[in-house]
Amino acid sequence: MNVGVAHSDPNPNTTYFNSRGMWLTYTIVVGIIHYVFLSLPFLSVAMSWTLTNVIHNFLMFIILHVEKGTPFETTDQGKYRDKTVWEQLDKGTHFSASKKFLTVVPIVLFFLASFYTKYDPYHFIINALSLILVLVPKLPMLHGVRLFGINKY
């Protein structure tokens, strides 16, 4: 059943994002979340785009840049204990394909949100701040850096 997709990586956190269909799945999940908001009658289109954007970025920040370590029983004696999931991705390779995808997705979402909120300044501030929150930790020079010792241990 799993021919060709089974891996022997001790820490699947490093490779799971390279699985086949991952990008499509990601896009579909974001789309579904957005359609859920759109279908709520009390939310305007602008609100639902901003909500999608903010929630996506917030979850991305928590899952990729706050969470450290790995839930798997690895045999590397806690090599990844102090690394965030983003730093574990592709074993720390910068600008790998999955990392480029994960950088482009919030930017594209921001463009869409800007367009559908008619470049409203309040929406802009919220969306731009949430975008910066997920773009800054992705910079290669901040790899392994914990600003002000936040989330260090």
């Binding site: 910068h94 600008f95 790998s96 394909a97 480029k100 482009v104 800007s114 300044p121 392994g144």
Partner: peptide, 28 residues
Amino acid sequence: QAPSYHLLFEAVLIVWIIQLLFVKSYKA
């Protein structure tokens, strides 16, 4: 009629994406 600060911000992001397309991956 979008405000200029907004367009500037988007221009920076577009440059970022273009740069991402051409940059090569390397080990940390």
